[in-house]
Simulated scan of single mutants.
Amino acid sequence: MVRLPLTPAEVDRGQRLGALLRRARGERPVLDTALAARISPETLRKIESGRVPTPAFATIAAIAGVLGLSLDAVWAEISRPDGETGPAGSVPGAGERLAS
Score class of each variant (00 low, 15 high):
2 V>S: 09
3 R>A: 11
3 R>E: 10
3 R>K: 12
5 P>H: 13
8 P>Y: 13
8 P>N: 14
9 A>D: 11
10 E>K: 15
12 D>M: 11
12 D>N: 12
12 D>H: 11
13 R>D: 00
13 R>L: 10
13 R>N: 06
14 G>N: 07
15 Q>A: 04
16 R>K: 14
19 A>T: 08
23 R>D: 15
23 R>F: 06
24 A>H: 03
25 R>M: 15
26 G>C: 06
26 G>Q: 05
27 E>D: 14
27 E>I: 08
28 R>Q: 15
28 R>M: 06
29 P>F: 02
35 L>Q: 10
35 L>E: 14
37 A>K: 06
37 A>Q: 01
39 I>R: 03
39 I>L: 00
40 S>K: 02
41 P>C: 13
42 E>M: 10
43 T>H: 04
44 L>T: 03
46 K>C: 06
48 E>F: 01
49 S>H: 06
51 R>Q: 14
54 T>L: 14
55 P>G: 03
55 P>S: 01
59 T>V: 10
60 I>V: 12
61 A>W: 07
63 I>K: 02
64 A>C: 02
66 V>S: 10
67 L>V: 06
68 G>P: 03
71 L>M: 09
72 D>V: 07
73 A>S: 15
74 V>H: 01
74 V>F: 00
75 W>Q: 08
75 W>A: 15
75 W>S: 11
76 A>C: 08
76 A>N: 10
78 I>P: 01
78 I>D: 03
80 R>F: 02
82 D>S: 11
82 D>A: 15
84 E>T: 08
86 G>L: 07
86 G>Q: 00
87 P>D: 05
88 A>P: 10
89 G>H: 07
90 S>W: 05
90 S>I: 04
91 V>D: 00
91 V>G: 02
93 G>Q: 04
94 A>W: 07
97 R>I: 10
99 A>H: 08
100 S>M: 09
100 S>N: 13
100 S>L: 12
